[in-house]
């Protein structure tokens, strides 16, 4: 019987304790400390997490909750009012804009960073560069062997993000001329897993954000003009526009909660915030 009693007392105690604490948090909000929830794109997660960590260090008493789930989840949470900031790796879709309008939300957006997508292969692969058309052929399935693009006689293994991620759609729109991926591609739920798999798999190819580049994978040079100029992905090349495959990352928020989130969004856009962007491996907006 004792176990049960201890157990119940514990729960009761924590419930009482937590309700008290809740009161405390509420009164605090009116002062300088803020409590912000952020939700959305998995691409933005590492950046938002680090920014939140540093912001909380600088502003004691503030709390920022960072939740993943994806751009779609973030935006519908913004619509329901269950999050203050939606992190997005793509712009709003027409249906989402409509729904947000219906819900009476006036949505503000801030471009906090750019993400350049690098096409990566296993380091053992001798292919160094590809044209956009070749990449399109590989991802749509019409090129299936590395020897067709100047590599060894080896099957091409295509890794991709999940079909619903912003990264997947961006790559499709800007690199694959909006054609659909072959259904034989392997899709992994997170970019980290893709990096690991490409590092392990000889014939692999994938696209990952610049932030994810490390020694276990090799980034290819890409040409957007039928093979005249090849550009290697780098923060500098993405910044001056010579590397074409880059996209903006957004924080969306409701106008009515601007006062609350402003300090954090301002921080993200400040020099300190942009330094975090660079440190994580994304491209700063300034």
């Amino acid at each position: 019987m004792n176990t049960k009693i201890t157990f119940l007392t514990l729960i009761l105690a924590s419930a009482v304790f937590s309700s008290c604490k809740n009161e405390g948090a509420k009164t605090e909000e009116t002062t300088t400390a803020v409590s912000i929830t952020m939700k959305g794109s998995d691409t933005v997660l590492p950046l938002a997490q680090k920014e939140a960590e540093d912001f909380m260090k600088a502003n004691a008493g503030s709390t920022i909750t960072v939740t993943g789930g994806g751009t779609g989840v973030g935006i519908s949470a913004l619509q329901d009012g269950t999050t203050d900031i939606a992190m997005a790796s793509r712009d709003l879709k027409a249906t989402e804009k409509l729904k947000l309008q219906e819900a009476g939300k006036d949505i503000q957006s801030a471009t906090i960073a750019y993400d350049a997508l690098a096409v990566v292969v296993n380091p053992a692969n001798k292919v160094q560069k590809l044209t956009r058309e070749q990449i399109e052929g590989i991802f749509t399935g019409s090129i299936a062997n590395w020897k067709e693009v100047g590599g060894a006689d080896e099957k091409i293994i295509v890794y991709s993000r999940e079909s619903s991620s912003g990264t997947y759609e961006f790559f499709k729109e800007h690199v694959m001329d909006k054609k659909n991926y072959a259904s034989t591609i392997l899709s992994l739920p997170a970019t980290g897993a893709i990096v690991q798999s490409v590092g392990q798999t000889k014939g692999a190819i994938a696209y990952v954000g610049l932030a994810y580049l490390d020694v276990s994978i090799k980034a290819l040079e890409v040409s957007y003009d039928q093979g005249k100029v090849f550009v290697a992905p780098s923060v500098a090349a993405a910044k001056d526009g010579s590397y074409p495959v880059s996209r903006p990352l957004f924080y969306f928020y409701n106008k009515s909660s601007e006062a609350k989130v402003k300090s954090f969004v301002d921080y993200a856009l400040s020099d300190a915030g942009q330094a975090v962007v660079a440190a994580i491996g994304y491209v700063p907006v300034k």
Partner: peptide, 9 residues
């Protein structure tokens, strides 16, 4: 994903 704070309710 990241919430370095204990729940308050």
């Amino acid at each position: 994903y990241f919430l370095p704070k204990l729940p308050s309710g």
